[in-house]
Simulated scan of single mutants.
Amino acid sequence: MSEPAGILAIDAMGSDLGPSEVVHGLALALKKKPALDGILLVGQEPLLLSLLEAEKVKDNGRVRIVHASEVIDMDDRPLQAIKQKKDASMLRAIDLVKTGQAKGVLSCGNTGSLMAAGTLRLRPIEGFERPALAAIVPTENGFFILLDVGANPNTTPKQMVHNALLGKYYAQAVLGIEDPAIGLLTIGTEEGKGNELSNKSHEYLKAARGHINYHGLIEGFHVFDRTVDVVICDGFVGNILLKTCESLLINVKHYLTHQLKKNWMRRMGALLCLRAFREMKQQFNPDRYGGVPLLGLQGTIIKAHGSSNATAIQNAIDVGYNMIREHKTSALQDAVAKVNAGIEEL
């Protein structure tokens, strides 16, 4: 008798913190949501059995282990790892989606290997050329979507329009914005001020306004003022921007901590502001969503940070289930076909 199909396949072995952190995050997710079911935990079975037993979730029927004997390490070369480590937990998890045994994958593992294997084995949705990584970025009073944040550093103008469509879909799914405003990140809002990629992309995006709410060009200082709901750029720029923002936030946190501990008056002032600091920490907590989706594939792939803690894993599982529920392949195929036809006419 065949096993029932799962919903989310979790690569338990790819984390920098080890499989125990992944399993702990899974246990938190199961405890928080009693209706959560259909988890396929992929990795070395004896180890995972002991970890599940320690978390007291071994025999609850909501988790099934799929054995995989190998692990793709963070310093492995993506294509080489895919060819040589055929029984790696990441690849087994992706294959579960390919064969219909799961609907999505969550992995903390090697980003290059995850993107390469996902693209090769699940293939882009018809009409899309390359997938894109999309991040949810917090602001003072909300969030915006930033993509691409690293999947495709050598983007073409046509792929930038594809990213806009994917960003629209993702903002609708996770932020609940029906008609998100989309902006193209460049060095100036004047027409023609930018490089060849931004200028051509701007032309294509204007032509696609019947399918997306294209606001137009935006600069760096527009990114956090909620001028738009979706910021699009190539994967090279997006990855640098995201990591710079993360680094700046950590730097500001350390600076404030140091300054507020300098004397007793500052410490008293900090106590008076404690509630505000807690709310700020919650708003800008990178663990809040836990993972970024690789959009544009015929299956859901969620990439969590390699150093994700249990809370981040728990929240990434939520992201995975939301993306599986909102996966709209046919709608995206229709939209991209019309956009591609419009580009061909330019």
Rank of each mutant, 00 (worst) to 15 (best):
L96T: 02
A335R: 07
L8S: 08
E21Y: 00
I125N: 05
D148I: 07
D37S: 15
Y170N: 02
L271E: 13
R130G: 02
K31C: 03
F128Y: 15
A335C: 03
L106E: 09
V339K: 00
S89Q: 09
G112P: 06
S198D: 02
I82C: 05
G25R: 01
T257C: 08
K281N: 15
I218E: 00
G216M: 09
I10E: 08
A93W: 03
P4C: 05
G43D: 06
G188L: 08
K98Q: 15
I343C: 03
A117E: 10
G320Y: 00
D148F: 07
V174C: 10
K262C: 03
H254V: 07
M268I: 14
I177F: 04
G150V: 02
R278Q: 15
P19A: 11
D87N: 15
I301E: 03
L91V: 12
L122C: 13
V292P: 05
P131C: 07
G18I: 02
F284L: 11
L274W: 13
L122Q: 10
I65W: 00
L40C: 06
L346V: 09
H215R: 09
V230P: 05
F144V: 11
E191F: 12
P180H: 06
A134I: 05
T189S: 13
I212T: 06
V23W: 03
V42W: 04
R77L: 07
Y204A: 04
M265P: 00
L122H: 11
A29M: 06
G43M: 11
F284M: 10
L248K: 03
S113W: 11
L242K: 03
P131T: 08
E126G: 05
T300E: 07
K86W: 01
G192Y: 04
A116D: 08
N163G: 13
A173C: 13
A164N: 12
A151D: 10
S307C: 07
